[in-house]
């Protein structure tokens, strides 16, 4: 697992690669919240996520909620197959409101 965090460009996407699971949740929480704090508009690239579990999902929900609280824009892009599968299973795709299966996001959807 490796996180490429481009802090010099505040709007640059954060790519999560490898595991987004209980094993990495603790680390990623800080990475994601730092990323969110650093910019007004954050994009999380999920294309490199190889493993995704409920802890990972829960983490994304938390970040999304935090973004809403802070009035910032958070987008998830490039959902890898494992992410898509779990989003579909959990029925939370609507909550995130991101366009799925599309590499380049057009606009942030509305969350409940």
């Amino acid at each position: 697992m490796a996180n490429e965090n481009n802090k010099k460009q505040p709007s640059g996407p954060i790519a999560i690669t490898g595991e987004l699971t209980i094993y990495t949740a603790l680390e990623l929480k800080d990475t994601l919240l730092d990323g969110l704090a650093a910019s007004e508009e954050l994009e999380l690239d999920l294309s490199g996520v190889g493993e995704f579990d409920a802890a990972g999902l829960q983490l994304l929900v938390m970040v999304k909620q935090q973004a809403t609280v802070l009035g910032k824009i958070l987008r998830f892009t490039g959902h890898s197959p494992v992410v898509l599968e779990l989003l579909d299973l959990s029925g939370l795709a609507g909550f995130f409101g991101d366009p799925l299966l599309i590499v380049k996001p057009i606009r942030e959807g509305k969350s409940i």
Partner: peptide, 9 residues
């Protein structure tokens, strides 16, 4: 999926 219990960041 019930996410209501997730506390603030």
């Amino acid at each position: 999926t019930i996410i209501d219990a997730i506390p603030p960041a």
